[in-house]
Design a protein around this nucleic acid. Structure first.
Length: 109
DNA sequence: CGGCTGACTGCGA
DNA sequence: TTCGCAGCCAGCC
């Protein structure tokens, strides 16, 4: 995908990575942060997704924390939404958390 | 320019 | 594995 072309925002990088997440797979904020070169700005990754309006273009529900727990503004507003979306895509859950061992996908740098 | 906030992570207990 | 504390980075006021 585009690399270095936009060069405007770290946000764009995040979006580019998130949209590449395969259906039925999930990744962590830290993984995305590293993929975009931010390294430790995992929190900013979530912040970037917070600014996303196109949930259709940005599958933010596929992004979880390292525990596999669905954290997110959307999940905070509608706790069932993210889980329903993931299950609908084929993601399996272990209790209240995603089976990272089964669905962890690492973004390509 | 300075300080605060945040959808996180790593380490220690 | 879970709980708590501190650290880093980028955006915003």
């Amino acid at each position: 995908m585009k690399q270095g072309t936009e060069g405007s925002d770290f946000f764009e990088r995040v979006y580019e990575v998130v949209v590449q997440i395969p259906v039925g797979m999930v990744t962590t904020y830290g993984a995305i942060a590293r993929a975009v070169g931010a390294g430790r700005s995992a929190r900013m990754v979530g912040y970037a997704l917070n600014g996303v309006v196109d949930s259709e273009r940005i599958p933010c529900h596929r992004v979880v924390n390292r525990n596999g727990d669905l954290s997110g503004r959307i999940h905070f507003a509608t706790p069932t939404l993210m889980r329903e979306l993931l299950e609908a895509e084929g993601v399996t859950f272990d209790g209240d958390r995603v089976r990272m061992k089964e669905h962890f996908w690492e973004p390509e740098v």
